[in-house]
Nucleic acid binder design. Sequence first.
DNA 1: TTGTATGCGTTATCAA
DNA 2: TTGATAACGCATACAA
Lengths: 363, 363
Amino acid sequence: MEQSRKRAKPGRNPGSVGRTSRPRQAEVAQLAGVSQATVSLVLSARTDGKAATISEETRQRVLDAARSLGYVHDPAARRLAAARNNLLGVFSFTATFPTDVQHSYYPFLVGVEQEAAARGYDLVLFTGSSAGGPDALSRVRLADGCLFLGRHAPGAELKRLVADGFPVVHLGRREELEGLAWVGADYVSASRAVVEHLAALGHRRIVLVREDDDAPASTDRQRGFVEGLAAVGGDAGPEAVLRCADPAGEVTAERVRALVEDGVTAFVAEETDTGAAWRALDAAVREAGLGCPGDVSLGLLGGPPPDLATAPVPMGFDVPRHQLGAAAVRLLAAMVAGEETHEPLVACAFRTGETAGPPGRRP
Amino acid sequence: MEQSRKRAKPGRNPGSVGRTSRPRQAEVAQLAGVSQATVSLVLSARTDGKAATISEETRQRVLDAARSLGYVHDPAARRLAAARNNLLGVFSFTATFPTDVQHSYYPFLVGVEQEAAARGYDLVLFTGSSAGGPDALSRVRLADGCLFLGRHAPGAELKRLVADGFPVVHLGRREELEGLAWVGADYVSASRAVVEHLAALGHRRIVLVREDDDAPASTDRQRGFVEGLAAVGGDAGPEAVLRCADPAGEVTAERVRALVEDGVTAFVAEETDTGAAWRALDAAVREAGLGCPGDVSLGLLGGPPPDLATAPVPMGFDVPRHQLGAAAVRLLAAMVAGEETHEPLVACAFRTGETAGPPGRRP
DNA sequence: TTGTATGCGTTATCAA
DNA sequence: TTGATAACGCATACAA
């Protein structure tokens, strides 16, 4: 099958055969009347700093020869000899490009691609689905290091990679795995800032609407919320956090109205894949006949779902997904280069929005 | 600089060093108590047909050893030795994930990823921006073959790849390069079908609004339009095609009204990145006070821009981007396997929509 | 300043 | 059925 061994008989005469094959350094060398090593030196001359170990004359001869032969590097050989692939892996347990765009990795990938390109790395995309074997993760070792997206990367195998010293970076806080490097958004600070913004406007009774899971992103937001409330001397009673399995079912107009009558002047909801908490809150407030920000102020701990783009912009913060992707690549590149780790948290951008104002009158 | 040569002293004892480095076949061999060549035989056993030149026992020993060491092939070495990588390249001259989502390759990539995964290939994303050198494209040779997106891949280098027998597939019709394989949407047939649909409704005077460039996608649409008109005996006068540098400037309410008074009963616009032609046509008809499909029927040769998703669904066709990506991968895989080319055109799906009806009364 | 020699990890041929 | 061994194209110590 393989039409390999395209070259001439063993050993001899590298230049004479291979009509259809691209020139190698040996042929350039022959034409220029120098050795292959010299060609390598000239052709891979580091642009950075000194490269002056070659006489200008032979340099030109080699360059001319290479040009006239149409020489280009063979990346495989180059990488083999240099012992690096210049390849960074991107692994997502689900498809990297889901048809359901709702929770796609696209925004992260923008930053990942930019940063990788800037550093001269190419990207290898691994999909968890593509090879179902138990050692599916070991394929990633083909890259110099690997970035993991999503929360589904199996812990055991990740642990193995880390233990072997393979450079791994997880996108999103993930501390239960000892020694796993990660990069995440600083939800705590950002959420606290939202509370502080409300407090500065005069609010003291604020309620958080969150879903009933224990994703780190949710936990962090709640922590920031509580911290913020404490810092401003706000009222963090037991009812300050509304934790509901189905926000739409539990955050009703009556509930909201009752809370407002009880003195609550502002609500914040956490951002999730589906935007369920924010949708439920928004609908309940509207249905309760409350004006925003006239009667109540609203905050969203994250960005609004894309289909609500035309609605009033919620006060809150934007998750810097591009920057997160870029930061992850920076960290990974540093690890590949054997350097030390760095600050894993990326700041979110506060968004003033249009849904927060001074506390309204109580109805 | 390069901390290559990481391994132990020349020659000896491959297994004892390299704690942080990926295992090679030699180490697997040592652990399994066989030679490196045997490992290669076992690990690259072709699944197709016979692979039975190794005893089942040593086979298992090797497999176990490889697994326990977390062995994976080195893509560079594998490629250098003239074997295959199971790596398919995806090259886009512009960023694959542009911040400007307008013309992103995302929909194609969905299909590309699915089909690649189904065939056991991983994807390497080569970003054009990373290396501007004259051999920027040569990096793709690391993969077994490469898919090119967008119209910006420099012809000279593409030609070189093709001439060297490197498997290349271009996404989108591209015939000016002799021997370049491509996969594209069948805009001609789809556009003709739109005209025929209008003709079946009774229309005879139809006008095409297109932009003033010569992209193959535009040319194909016009060709289908003209063919369709001819086939149904429609009136393809010199004014049947409105070719304008700035549709918004030239497709005005007056113009449309004049055409309608002259007997035109239907308009079709081409789809572009920006959707400019369709926007202009839609606005002009609306401003002319014409009802659709009451007074005039409209067709769109492609899909509507995402921000017009709430507007009435235009009659026309959908470009099967997923399928295009998948078809491109299929073709590329076939070329890698040394098989022959196939049908390059993928059919578009007709979309009935809500903007076409019987010809209206003339005002 | 340039050439020689060797290794990078894999595949493939051939002999045992 | 398995083990040596020779490429593959390039980079790089080291010698000249």
